[in-house]
Design a protein around this nucleic acid. Structure first.
Lengths: 341, 341
DNA sequence: TTGAAAGCGCTACCAT
DNA sequence: ATGGTAGCGCTTTCAA
């Protein structure tokens, strides 16, 4: 362990025969310092490879220029894209990001929040776990004046800025598209009804049917529990065994749609001719399967970027953040799985 | 901004009529403190919601319990899995992780390293960008006695612990498998020859051919530049236009294999009958395409976990880390795209 | 077993 | 324009 010691402000001051405060002000280019001194100090610092001790600065300023980012699941196209967007924005504005994942477990979320608090992040970006039904663990942050911004999976009651996707519109557009393609009995593999995203997509699904004068059949709506490929497979089986099976399926997620597609293919159904299929998320894999899967793109990158931007703006302005909701529009990406004409 | 102030050690000491040092020692359960005092202080702290000021502790101890993690690309099945593994290990051992991505750009990598240094991470986990051909930007860390552990994309010359996948063996097994399935003219879409992983896979490819007495044809080896689906498509086209086209293709990556598969399907080639196909990485999508893609699994999660474990062990022991290489075995996952019998 | 006090590196306030 | 200095909250050495 060679521990080459960094030089400190004191060293600079001593060797330059000036005071520590002057050195500090010069390096930070404060007003009231002669250009000569500034140049002198900066040159010396550069030459001797001076790196300010961030821990000392943080300690002194009670700021870390570090953000906390908590997501349910990292190995997930949507979240990794959102993180990517948040990191990009953070980098642009000089912040670093502490990342944590909860595996959809509330206990992990609480732990992550505590850890972030302990790490003295300036603020937090969070997408809640499916289990989270109150935000006690985030109040501690808020009480200390550290802003929190929720994105994607949010809790309505928590009075923080929120960035969400327009799930209702996305679902509405997807189902309307199916109807336009001539499908008439459209099933929906939904998620937890307690999770707002699921509820909104369901609402969009129903509204689209209603607006087109189609009947809402409760036996066409199935709620997934873990939103997995397996469930997509299994529930599609159930759907197709109905006396009057659907002619198309709108899936809560591309992953579920994968399972659905698998079942349909295995049982010899032609997609999109016999059964139309559309997902939600627009995973990269949607392009690679055959037929390519139509999907609703959530602009995950932009979402992470936006959430991060809001958080940093808050930080810069010293405000804690209003309870306001920013809605990112979705984009319907039509591919072969739902294109009949 | 309500800023409910935290209580400090000083507050505790004053209110309990003891000294700050006693309070500190009691909270940390140092030896040489009476059980009564410990209980007294801990109870008081718990009751008043005492949270130590981490910035002060970090500053004082010159440790942050924070790790830096730098990867080329976050939205990538392999890397998000590896990060996931690293985060899990870090969490288990009480560390938090600062994440940064370089988009395969050296300039970003240098910047990320600087940022991490500035953020005073205790150590760094890094997977290098394709552009990185020397490790100057990491030397600063090492010189300060902060350990660095490289994983996956590593630079041989940098004297740090390395965790890599057995690219040679993985490629060797993949190609041998193709041979066992009766394929005789096997092409290889490789990557940069300057990147070690690519070079090793190429070596494995060649060795497998040689060991089976098959000829190595240079026109069957094509180097991708950005390892994209498009390249997979285009280079497969080139391969199939050869006078004696290959009967199977071993792709450097599943993504490249996707492009390859697309071209083969579009031109009416049957997989695996006419052409066998095998990838590397075992993306989740490999399961979803038709035919399902055979691939070499890199155990990304385990890799991240292992790298992180090594780093933390180093940190705990106060050592800087030897130049040693840990090789994670690969696992051949055979699916339909290469199964002839 | 406990207390007093130095001091980590930096910033910012108060002088000059 | 510059210097002196207090002090952020904590740990740790030295004394008692």
């Amino acid at each position: 362990m060679s521990e080459k010691k960094r030089i400190t402000l004191k060293d600079i001051a001593k060797n330059l025969g000036i005071s520590v405060s002057t050195a500090s002000r010069a390096l930070n280019s404060y007003s009231g310092i002669s250009d000569d001194t500034i140049k002198l100090v900066k040159d010396y610092a550069a030459k001797h490879n001076y790196v300010p001790n961030t821990m000392a600065v943080n300690f002194r300023k009670n700021k870390t220029l570090t953000l906390g980012l908590i997501v349910p699941e990292l190995v997930h196209y949507f979240f990794s894209s959102a993180i990517s967007g948040a990191l990009a924005e953070a980098k642009k504005r000089g912040y670093t990001v502490l990342v944590s994942q909860t595996d959809e477990l509330l206990s992990n979320e609480v732990y992550a929040a505590r850890t972030m608090i302990a790490s003295s992040v300036d603020g937090i970006l969070i997408s809640l776990s499916n289990q989270t039904i109150n935000g006690e663990h985030l109040n501690e942050l808020l009480e200390e004046g550290r802003p929190v911004v929720q994105f994607d999976k949010v809790l309505e009651e928590l009075p923080t800025p929120k960035v969400i996707v327009d799930d209702f519109q996305g679902a509405y557009n997807a189902v309307t598209h199916l109807i336009e393609q001539g499908y008439r009995s459209i099933a929906h593999l939904n998620g937890f009804s307690t999770v707002k995203n699921s509820a909104e997509r369901l609402r969009g699904y129903k509204q689209a049917l209603t607006d087109s004068g189609l009947e809402i059949r409760e036996d066409f709506i199935i709620h997934c529990k873990d939103i997995s490929e397996e469930e997509g497979f299994e529930f599609t089986r159930q759907l197709m065994q109905l006396p009057n099976p659907p002619d198309s399926i709108f899936c809560i997620t591309d992953l579920v749609a994968m399972g659905s597609m698998k079942f349909l293919k295995e049982t010899g159904k032609k997609i999109p001719d016999d059964v139309g299929l559309i997902g939600f998320s627009n995973w990269n894999m949607a392009n690679f399967v055959t037929p390519a899967l139509s999907s609703v793109d959530q602009h995950a990158f932009k979402m992470g970027e936006k959430a991060c931007q809001i958080l940093i703006d808050l930080l810069k302005s010293g405000k804690i953040g209003k309870d306001e909701t920013h809605i990112i529009p979705t984009e319907l990406v039509v591919r072969d799985s739902s294109r009949r004409y």
